[in-house]
Design a protein around this nucleic acid. Sequence first.
RNA 1: GCGAGAGUGGCGGAAUUGGCAGACGCACUAGACUUAGGAUCUAGCGGGUAAAACCGUGGGGGUUCGAGUCCCCCCUCUCGCACCA
Length: 826
Amino acid sequence: MHQKYAFKAVEEKWQQIWEKVKAFKVTEDPEKPKFYCLEMFPYPSGKLHMGHVRNYSIGDVLARFYRMNGYQVLHPMGWDAFGLPAENAAIKNNIPPAKWTWDNIANMREQLKRMGISYDWDREVASCHPNYYKWTQWFFLQFFKKGLAYKKASHVNWCPSCATVLANEQVVGGHCERCDTKVEKRSLEQWFFRITEYADRLLANLPKLTGWPERVKVMQENWIGRSKGAGLVFKSEDGHELRVFTTRPDTVFGVTYMVIAPEHPLVEELIKDKPQAEEVREFVKRVTAQDDITRTAADTEKEGIFTGAYAINPFNGEKVPIWVANYVLLGYGTGIVMGVPAHDQRDFEFARKYGLPVKVVVAPPGETLRGEDLEEAFPADGVLVNSGEFNGLSTKEAIAAVTKKAEELGIGQAEVNYRLRDWLISRQRYWGAPIPVVYCDKCGIVPVPEEDLPVLLPEDVRFKPSGQSPLAELEEWVQTTCPSCGGPARRETDTMDTFVCSSWYFMRYTDPKNSEKPFDREKVDYWLPVDQYIGGIEHAILHLMYARFFTMVCHDLGLVGVEEPFTNLLTQGMVTKDGFKMSKSKGNVVDPGYIIDSYGADTARLFILFAAPPEKDLEWSDQGVEGCFRFLNRVWRLAYDVDTRVRPYWDGTAPSNLSNDAKELRRKTHETIKRVTEDIKERFNFNTAISALMELVNSLGKYVAEADPKEAGPVVKEAMEALLLCLAPFAPHISEEIWSELGFEGSVHDRSWPEYDPAALVQDEVEIVIQINGKVRERLVVPKGASKEELEKAAFAANKVQELTNGKQVRKVIVVPDKLVNIVVG
RNA sequence: GCGAGAGUGGCGGAAUUGGCAGACGCACUAGACUUAGGAUCUAGCGGGUAAAACCGUGGGGGUUCGAGUCCCCCCUCUCGCACCA
């Protein structure tokens, strides 16, 4: 064994061996329990960053741990390879997106291999490969057949910088989730997935996801935003239907005006021939020009204008004015709201501003409220007043009664509304999976037949600096024949949102080479659900909700048995430096490649796991890395010492009368096994698992230096073996090298995870604490398991205790065996 | 404003069931080895004191023999949502 820890040689050696023998290849084995360990696949930007290192190091610990525990472990890796950066690079450097992407993949694959992550590389997928996106397109066709994919015109989010539309989920605070540009509204015809049809299931299943962080579930719940209420139909004087959604149908007698969203198509109808028409048009123009953030901020001043039209309240026949106002959104409910100022704070503010009447219809039991006296709305439950036949009912009763009445009159029904919108999946971009549809003058929208898939993305394209997709201008690609009538037709030139590609990759991993179908039912059912999914919190809504939706659809299509894809979810924290997320613009990026070159992959992995628990943010520390490097060097020196001095004697059996030091080391060994096992399996606290290993190394080092090698042999062997086995998931290369150098058999990674011996943990003696009035005054070493009486006696026998209790009255003595004695004196 | 989470040495963080606060690591200090030390080893390392006492887990109160941990009130920070009818 070399005296010096040559990490570079060690890591390269084992990486080559593992690759050659395909150490981490896995297949289905119904005899064994399975563990599907998945890390979110990366966008191939070209270089690994520390967030990746953290993500994959966490996953690799679990994968290796469960493998050693006898599981068939599926641990795959692939590439979320479509997306805009490839196009930007193409424009900037004149490299085709495909080449740029594949070069990046090659680089990053090399870096991952240098990290020593235990992937089954035979299962690698890349979403930009025709063998993959063929099936993405196939899914689109299945969705289309089921009516879950459809095209419609609507007001959509447009990112001027990305030159494409975005899904609602990809707009964060009015800005593009990707590039942070302010998003605009455009009226366009686009493809959607009908995710709203699954809103209830997506919501209902959330409580079942017990292995998910609470906050992710809350975020999804808020995003889906279910509210129960009623749909009611009002009519304008000239006969237009005004459908509203309300969560408070009980307040319908309190309606004193109606409000319609400025963008609502009905506005034009209502103001026709009205003297206010021009004024209203100008108002609409002004409001719609505002960006969404200002428009929807809670503190934006409510503004409105009377349309000149009136509506009739179907419940009491009252005639109320119809207004247009900025606080009503076209995108939620019906875009029309009944104004009940007495019981809704927004309506109240609006009514006060424009002098509209405030009519109280709900009051606290036994009290009277007067609309003109109110200083704010009364939104709480109460008893109905001024509401005709419904007077005297409670809010709850009235909601039911009014809804029922509306049904009888044929003017409404109970309704559930969602904040969730359908998923806009078209992108006006080139580097994505083409939507497999053609437009025929005769037949209209025609899906491409399954046997014609994939619709290949032409790779020989030229980019203009304008940022526009070159697909639309590629006439030879756009022009095609209609699969239905054979006549001339034009291809859809939009591609799919990359989140579509990433919504099913975890299923493809189970059968990545299948050319007949996206994946085999038996294989996917063997592996799914993913037992542990690991990734960043930024996907709490986006990817994680889309993937759940996709899995449900696949379930309904009979493609997979499960409805929920991810049993346990771990959201890792950010890697920061100087308190900020690492980013090029901040100039605080630490390159993993540099760390691996300078200290090795084992050190990099160890540091990133040791510095903080996985869910928390992790502050990068160059000195912390040094510390971990020093630790691995200590492990190496320890192994070297053991190899030269103890190993010749370690194959005998341990004497039955071990010295106290030897016993203590055995205890430490087994305690370490216990702690590391529990920290990995039950708590994901890799930082404390590593500190336990450090403690073992410290004890072992001390023992080896002091003990007689002949006596120490077997005990040291046991400790060393446990150390290497427990260290293997964290620092796989050095563990493997020392394992083999010390003459242990086979690969450390093929060995069973060690079990601790409870007998070795038992101590003959324990140190207990003697407290007086709750303060520690003395420590005593007593036989383990001593009785309460014995402990009390021993405590009072101690000099210090006698001194301090002398002349005082002992009021109470609390004895906790093997822990403490607390003497209360007064 | 609403919801979730957090607040412990100079720093990252431990403390799993209410029972020795600060494991482990970093930084720092002293010493050893050395031509040298940014290597390695030994010792120390919350504040305070000559040593003790004493003080100490964001602040205040409470329960308890005993509270970082449980309860109530408050402060600060982070994240999410925010005119959703």
